[in-house]
Amino acid sequence: MRLTTTVNGEEVTREVEGRLLLVHFLRDHLGLTGTHWGCDTSNCGTCVVWMDGEPVKSCTVLAAMAGGREVRTVEDLADGDRLDPVQQGFMECHGLQCGFCTPGMMMTARALLDRNPDPSEGEVREAISGQICRCTGYSTIVRSVRWAAEHECAEREEASS
């Protein structure tokens, strides 16, 4: 079937099988390997991307379901050379060890901060509760997201003063 979707702001059209999963479409058809492919069972969350602005597990979404919708992947987080505060937070606070869960964690964190700019530690933990860090580095991930929140709050205050 012919699939047309928007990925990171760019419209793409490809011939795909109906059974193709979104994660494989992104990785294998578009070469966007920033999105990782993990458990295949919607448990680990490393494949999280946004569809129409909401985080989804792309191993459990068909590529066809993204037709006519807007997909955003980890590749779109940075603005040119300027990292997203979430990415910066992961760097500052050692939010990644092996890096496998990182793309999914960061996409979920970005969505959380867009809805709730100053989440408590508990709210961050709840937001990432469907995602697994195989290094078990959750404390530093939570700290990284909090770093981004504080950084963005401070930036906003500076801009408004």
Binding site: S42, P55, V56, K57, T60, V61, T108, S129, G130
Partner: peptide, 9 residues
């Protein structure tokens, strides 16, 4: 029920 990302779908 499930987790926040699954609950989006």
């Amino acid at each position: 029920i499930a987790d926040p990302v699954v609950r989006n779908r």
